[in-house]
Write a protein that binds this DNA or RNA. Sequence first.
DNA 1: GTTATCTTTGACATTCGTGTCAATGATGGC
DNA 2: GCCATCATTGACACGAATGTCAAAGATAAC
Lengths: 195, 195
Amino acid sequence: MVGVKQFDEDIVIEAVLRTFWDKGYCETTMADLAAASGVQRGSLYNAYGGKDRLLLMSLERYGERYGAAAERALEKSSPREAMKAFLESHLDRMLNPKNPAGCLMCQTVMECSGRDDALTDFISRHFQRVEMAIRETLCRGRDGGLLRGDVDVRSLARFFLGVSRGMAVLHRAYGDIEPARDMAKAALKLIDMES
Amino acid sequence: MVGVKQFDEDIVIEAVLRTFWDKGYCETTMADLAAASGVQRGSLYNAYGGKDRLLLMSLERYGERYGAAAERALEKSSPREAMKAFLESHLDRMLNPKNPAGCLMCQTVMECSGRDDALTDFISRHFQRVEMAIRETLCRGRDGGLLRGDVDVRSLARFFLGVSRGMAVLHRAYGDIEPARDMAKAALKLIDMES
DNA sequence: GTTATCTTTGACATTCGTGTCAATGATGGC
DNA sequence: GCCATCATTGACACGAATGTCAAAGATAAC
């Protein structure tokens, strides 16, 4: 039906996000996005402007969903529980059979950071936010006496951020969640050590 | 000069590798590779067959260089020294100002694993080899009494493999080596704990 | 009912990348 | 000297993706 909006924005973004996540930015064409979302190519251009914008919207949506889940996990009072929940939130994402392997943020930054500065900025800011959230959790734990007083929170925060990213690479490369699980299991011991 | 080979294969592969590393597979065109290597597009097709082959050759070269460096590092007798040298071999690669940020293997698997199975196999085999090399180092350490007898070598090997991958993501996302350095520093404490 | 607004839809021009090929010319074996 | 072989080079055809546009039609405000 011409003239009246035919689609639900939410469903479209979801389909677009999934396609980028699965195939990567370059490999995905507007025709792919049209097919995946059931919306005509022209309508996508009309509503969103183009591939760049659609990717950015996908990243925003992705960040809202999984970044928020990670930050909720970090709210637990004990640093041990918080870091465990943080890593498990990533494993949960990987366990969902509807999700492609890996992590959209990591994949996009690995693919596009050489070219698109705006995108790289967006993603590095996302990483920084997570890093800071981890750091605050660690600081709370330290100040509450649950971690050693001389714990290097900067280093440890970057460590856990990096572990979550490494898990995504292992997941995508191996097509199996077990290596990521093993990695998380080992990483958690570091918190016990600083307790 | 028509009729006689104009280029040094080594220089070409090096230029091609660097271009893929910098821009990613999809974003790189044969014209880019021709410009970077100083060899005509037609000659590249004639000598190597196409983009796929060139990428595979680049990955082989990359693996020979950096995979070998990592495995040499793992030959140290003490597990602590071996893991330290292993992670430092990755930092060395990132410190070289001639290298693009990140890691070609990680970037390629993140970008292409959804599409090209042969490529994914190649890279996951590379990861497996590294994983196994780490594991052997850990086993040697355990059997020599330098690690606890009940150390979970599988989990720990995957952990260190994943840490090296996470470092690559942080490096590329932040465009700075410090987060990767911090991550390595924290990860090494895990070995002290298992000693 | 008229008008303004908005979306859909298919078509279109254009650009870009790929892969192939034939012509060209240098080299080396015989 | 002749011939087979091989790499270079530019041209070419083809397909794919992009971004734009005008026509068409539905809706809502007035």
